[in-house]
């Protein structure tokens, strides 16, 4: 039988672009660093039954629409997108078990093949001001807000966080827009004295 011979691996939507990228480090990375975290394990679902089903699976559900909460033991995050849509990201075992689990009616699976970027650095706000018309500086991060908006013309989901007084934001978009989003933000980042970094260098922020 043929299929046993194959072991395909998933590939990030940014792979082609990254293969020719020049990474930055040091001061430049501290200014503004953009990393590709598209291949993080992810599970998505939505529907009127989503909240009770996720709870029954032991997944903590953010209480407010458009907010997030962390999984225990630093295993990842749960985002509540709007009122009844959810994105679970981080822990491969949890994601796999949710994908395999039986879903009752009222829970609709959403296949997540996002492009996802991790943006961090002291010049991050300057980048955001050039790309998105949401006042991120005015958000109260203690409520873990999630923002669904448009960035450089592309629909995105943004989770703003701060680590050691340095802003670090996760930005998800449809994979087909990923290369465009990354290239556009990189152009601006380079003007601000930053650039692309490997995901490993931002591992502490994951």
């Amino acid at each position: 039988m043929m299929s046993a011979a194959f072991n395909p691996v998933p590939v990030s939507p940014l792979a082609d672009g990254l293969s020719s990228a020049v990474f930055v480090s040091g001061e430049e990375a501290a200014n503004l660093a953009i990393a590709d975290i598209s291949l993080q394990p992810r599970f998505g679902c939505k529907g009127p039954g989503a909240i009770s089903w996720l709870t029954a699976q032991g997944v903590p559900v953010p209480t407010a629409p458009n907010s997030a909460c962390v999984l225990p033991q630093g295993k990842g995050r749960v985002l509540r997108l709007g009122v009844t849509e959810f994105l679970v990201e981080g822990d491969a075992a949890l994601v796999a078990s949710l994908a395999a689990a039986q879903r009752p009616s009222g829970v609709y699976p959403v296949l997540r093949q996002d492009a996802c970027l991790l943006l961090s650095g002291r010049k991050l706000n300057a980048l955001l001001l050039q790309s998105c018309n949401v006042n991120f500086a005015a958000l109260d991060l203690s409520t873990s807000p999630v923002v669904l908006t448009s960035m450089v013309g592309v629909g995105v989901t943004v989770l703003p966080e701060e680590k050691n007084d340095v802003p670090c934001y996760r930005v998800w978009c449809d994979g087909s827009y990923g290369l465009y989003l990354w290239q556009t933000l990189c152009t601006i980042a380079e003007e601000l004295g930053g650039g692309t970094v490997g995901a490993e260098s931002l591992a502490v922020l994951l």
């Binding site: 629409p65 458009n66 709007g82 009122v83 018309n133 949401v134 669904l148 908006t149 448009s150």
Partner: peptide
């Protein structure tokens, strides 16, 4: 009603 005030281009 869910996402708050945004510019009309959204």
């Amino acid at each position: 009603p869910i996402n708050g005030p945004r510019p009309v281009s959204e």
